[in-house]
Design a protein around this nucleic acid. Structure first.
Length: 423
RNA sequence: GGAGAGAUGGCAGAGUGGUCGAAUGCGGCGGAUUCGAAAUCCGCUAUACGGGUUACCGUAUCGGGGGUUCGAAUCCCCCUUUCUCCGCCA
């Protein structure tokens, strides 16, 4: 959601922006619905003023005939208000439905393009290993080392679920510990978050919890959903609040399970742990003043890079193209890790500056130096998306004898430095 | 899951149909007093939207939604949520 006044004043620019981002939205319709809504509100206000004045006249004692006349007038006003309110409701709903589809503005440095292929590679970090043996992918390794069980999970839970077993189970916990410790030492307050949130919060963050295209599991007979990311519950913490300027920036790091229906996603590119219905994730979230958000995005990207350098996983940094940003993001960086099983890079983190797009929907503001309430800027970034990091570790650090090396920084949390072949 | 009691401004807390955007206290801001401070006294002290675009005016908001009424913080219905007690449970 953007400031409607800004949209009204920049109709052409908003149309170009939506086109650039591959978003079908009727800007003219948004503006005309808003104008009609304002007209109706003005009429309603005048009618209500009349009603209030009419009622005020009846406060004291008066002739019954005079009172009856006023009551008749009041009834007449009441009917007019009711009719207009009906129309207002309809127009307001239509307006909101269309306005919600307007994407955020786009940072000037974002490469224009339709898909992820148009994203700009900023740099590659780390050395891609040349194997002197035939490397296995993580599915093969997982089976050989008794680390991952897809078959049992599919009979117990359904396809695209998995059991992590033995060292892999401990590796998940180690990654979560490592991520939470690492980032909380940088001033991010650690949170364990609910895995369920209300649909209204999902919408505020920019997810669409309903409809055929949705990637969200909803809970039958409630207005609650399984979260797709802790971004939802971390962002929801301050919904409706007016924050003090001195409290900003607010930096949080949260752990949650993430649930995604992944409707229609299947095939070789998403096999194994790469795209699953449930996974664990550590996520950063920042609420800050508007002028700080550009720099905060670089901070988040920097932390992500530091982590993958420490883990020793080769990666590249992408400046995500306009068509692949999603509605809330103003600018987004993805880190893609080298995954030998794909013989390609695969997305491992994503950090976005959503400016005031989410804060408008969630109504999160701060009182600025002039005493005015201003919308905050909100950003998020992945620390550890557990299954994809496990893929990267298993595939990059496998040895000819079938064992897998554990990155040094994780050893304090795993308690072992190697996963050995089972007898 | 059952029973009961609540939800009012930054906080505490009055208010059971029109004189209530809301008493009073605390807190906050400004001023008086003082060499200065404390104490005391006086005044001000919610948000959003819309119109004048300055000192103003209007509308809405007393947990949320719906209803009754000429008129609702106040009456009715539904929901949410908090507390207390009981049950169940890791």
């Amino acid at each position: 959601m953007l400031d409607i006044k800004f949209i009204k004043d920049n109709v052409e620019m908003m149309k170009e922006n939506a086109a650039k981002r591959n978003v079908a939205v009727d800007i003219d319709k948004v503006v005309s619905l808003y104008n009609r809504k304002t007209e109706i509100q003005f009429e309603l206000d005048s009618l209500r003023q009349k009603r209030n004045e009419n009622a005020a006249k009846m406060k004291g004692k008066m002739e019954q005939a005079e009172r009856n006349a006023l009551i008749e007038e009041g009834k007449d006003i009441k009917a007019k208000i009711a009719a207009l309110e009906e129309e207002e409701k309809k127009v307001a709903a239509d307006y909101l439905a269309e306005a919600m589809n307007v994407p955020n503005l786009t940072h000037p440095s974002v490469p224009v393009g339709k898909t992820d292929k148009d994203s700009q590679e900023l740099r590659k970090v780390g050395t891609i290993r040349k194997f002197d043996f035939e490397p296995k992918n993580h599915v093969q390794l997982g089976e050989a080392l008794d680390l991952i069980d897809f078959d049992t999970a599919s009979s117990v839970s359904g396809q695209k679920f998995y059991y992590l077993k033995n060292e892999a189970a401990l590796l998940e916990l180690a990654l979560v510990q490592y991520g939470m410790q690492k980032v909380s030492k940088k001033g991010f307050k650690p949170h364990l978050t609910p895995d369920i949130a209300k649909a209204s919060i999902l919408e505020g963050i920019g997810f669409n919890p309903r409809g055929e295209e949705t990637n969200i599991y909803s809970i039958e007979n409630t207005d609650q959903c399984l979260v797709g990311t802790a971004e939802i519950t971390l962002g929801g913490i301050n919904a409706g609040k007016i924050l003090n300027e001195s409290d900003l920036p607010i930096k949080m790091v949260g752990f949650s399970h993430c649930f995604r229906t992944e409707a229609g996603a299947a095939g070789q590119a998403t096999k194994g742990l790469y795209r699953v219905h449930q996974f664990s994730k550590v996520e950063m979230f920042i609420i800050c003043k508007p002028e700080e958000s550009d720099a905060m995005l670089e901070t988040l990207r920097g932390i992500e890079e530091e982590i993958y350098q420490e883990l020793g996983i080769p990666y590249r940094v992408l400046n995500v193209s306009s068509g692949d940003l999603g509605n809330p993001a103003y600018k987004k960086y993805d880190l893609e890790a080298w995954m030998p099983g794909r013989n390609d890079y695969g997305e491992i983190t994503s950090t976005s500056n959503c400016t005031d797009y989410q804060s408008r929907r969630l109504n999160i503001r701060f009182k600025n130096a002039d005493g005015k309430n201003q919308f905050v800027h909100m950003l998020n970034g992945t620390v550890i998306a557990v299954p994809r990091v496990i893929i990267s570790i298993m595939e990059n650090f496998q040895n000819a004898d079938g064992s897998i090396d554990i990155p040094k920084v994780l050893v304090p949390w795993t308690g072992f430095d190697k996963i050995l072949p089972k007898k």
